[in-house]
Design a protein around this nucleic acid. Structure first.
Lengths: 158, 158
DNA sequence: GTTCCTTAATTGCGTTTGCAACAATTTTTA
DNA sequence: TAAAAATTGTTGCAAACGCAATTAAGGAAC
């Protein structure tokens, strides 16, 4: 392989494939462990955590959707489920009559805290444990750059 | 922050979060571009490509499922769809009468080739472009290690 | 060789997703 | 300010998913 460009190109596709496969395998494992511990799916965690971080423990529906990377309609129904489980509730916005907030309930907060140790164990166990500090720092930086580019870069020269 | 351990721990969780979000955002974009080009979903690509690489362009259903990280039942139905679209077909195994192969058809091969430029564009554009060669090599190594540990590590000391 | 256990693939069913359509606003623009 | 356009959140429907049960065959035990 004389040409370094061809080598790098081949590798990059491999890295992407690895990225996808790793994601799939790890998520499968995490979901399995949550279920084993009789906890709700990971998705619920994301929403609860997003609400917990937000001012007054609430977020407009579309902000919440963006925050957890879900389509509006899917978020609507996810919040339906959370609401049915008593972990979140809705609150209509006063300034914009179309709008609604998703709001964390105390039970939702408690559930988030209950899920965390299990989830955290998964992260450390499956992910973190296998990374040196340097690798982690590098991945962090790289992923940050990729995400930012994808998010605001709109149509990055497609 | 005096204790380097606490710093590293906090970062690792952030890295994982970034990993998840990046995956979600990138997949969303890729699916959108495929659809825009009137091509089937990414999942189809994975199966077609797995078959193309396999000896005689065929794989037992369970091997295929493992290869694309899908549950058996989901793979069964995915192959149903591919079969309906003429991109793959089934072939019953002679040595094991329970078994079936998923087999790539010429149309399936053609479709895989038609999808590749679009998909490749996405990978380069959204992922690769933002990584230096070093970063890529490091991510590659790290992901490989994580994946291998998750896959054969069975129950890695849970 | 018959019984028991495992593996392969599929199917049924309830849940969740993706998309397009919708109603109710708010914002823009002419 | 009236009309047009865009935004917010929800809903209907078809497609896809997860899981448990099922059918069929292989392999092990005895």
């Amino acid at each position: 392989m004389r040409n370094p460009k061809s080598k790098s190109t081949a590798d990059s596709t491999a890295t992407w494939a690895l990225f996808l496969t790793t994601h799939a395998v790890l998520l499968e494992k995490i979901e399995a462990r949550l279920k084993e511990a009789e906890l709700p799916p990971l998705e619920w965690y994301d929403v609860l955590w997003a609400l917990e971080r937000a001012p007054q423990h609430r977020l407009r529906m579309h902000e919440l959707a963006h925050s957890v990377v879900l389509s509006r309609s899917n978020l609507t129904r996810l919040v339906d489920r959370l609401e049915a489980a008593g972990l979140a509730k809705r609150q209509s916005a006063t300034d914009d009559k179309r709008g609604a907030y998703g709001v964390l309930t105390p039970a939702g907060l408690a559930m988030r805290k209950r899920m965390w140790p299990v989830y955290r164990g998964c992260i450390v166990n499956l992910f973190n444990q296998h990374l040196s500090e340097d690798e982690q720092a590098i991945m962090n930086g790289a992923l940050r750059r990729i995400l930012d580019a994808a998010r605001d870069g709109a149509d990055e020269g497609r």
